[in-house]
């Protein structure tokens, strides 16, 4: 496994060794790092949720099935996308997988290029999600460090009130309000009022 620590990785889980190794061969052909596991248990034992990636797994597996793994990850708030490979006649399982929020599923025998495309898409999606969440983390931190007065100002800014109006409401000068607003934007590491509004709303929604 010649992967650098922050490169997105594909986890292949399949109890059939031949299928598992052939998938490694295929996915490595497009330069993506791959880790293979013979069972969901093996995977969970070594998995650390610190890198972007995606999981490719067979829906029918002994011990812990693909669906059970999916449910397990969901319960632990791990959002690594999953691509489930189903055999013919597994439609009810596929439906269940979709309801559980699987990113994708693909029916065997599948078109290899389609699988590779989906893997690429899933990796990109996970990378973006993780970046967004990193940003959100900073904003949340900033929000936690606002003073009471700054909170009052922020609420009114989000409500779309002008600095003048805010100043009148709070019995402050317009200049002071402007100073508070600059301080808030600095703490949340945003560069425009529009961004300030978006980040604040996103933070509040996610808590």
């Amino acid at each position: 496994m010649t992967t650098t620590s922050n490169q997105a990785i594909t986890y292949v889980i399949d109890d059939d060794k031949a299928v598992r190794e052939s998938l490694r061969w295929l996915i490595e052909s497009v330069g993506l790092p791959v880790e293979t596991y013979g069972s969901a248990r093996d995977f969970l034992n070594s998995f650390s949720n610190d890198r972007p990636g995606c999981i490719v797994l067979d829906v029918r597996m002994p011990e812990i099935s693909g669906l059970e793994l999916q449910e397990h990850l969901k319960a632990h708030d791990i959002q690594t996308p999953i691509i489930i490979i189903t055999g013919h006649g597994d439609v009810p399982m596929a439906v269940r997988a979709l309801k559980n929020g699987a990113v994708d599923f693909i029916e065997k025998p599948f078109n290899d290029q389609a699988l590779l495309d989906r893997i690429q898409h899933a990796l990109q999606h996970d990378t973006e999600t993780r970046n967004k969440q990193a940003l959100l983390g900073v904003a949340k931190d900033g929000l936690a460090h606002l003073t009471k007065r700054e909170h009052e100002v922020l609420n009114r800014v989000i409500a779309g009130e002008s600095s003048k109006r805010i100043a009148a409401d709070l019995g402050l000068s317009t200049k002071t309000v402007e100073a508070h607003r600059a301080k808030i934007m600095q703490k949340l590491q945003v560069k425009s009022v529009a961004e300030l509004v978006r980040v604040t709303v996103a933070c509040r929604e996610s808590t």
Binding site: A18, S22, P109
Partner: peptide, 18 residues
Amino acid sequence: AHDINQPLSAVRNYVQGC
């Protein structure tokens, strides 16, 4: 069908990889 599909998928993966 599943039992036949397994090796077929593997073959396909190897060839496509090549």
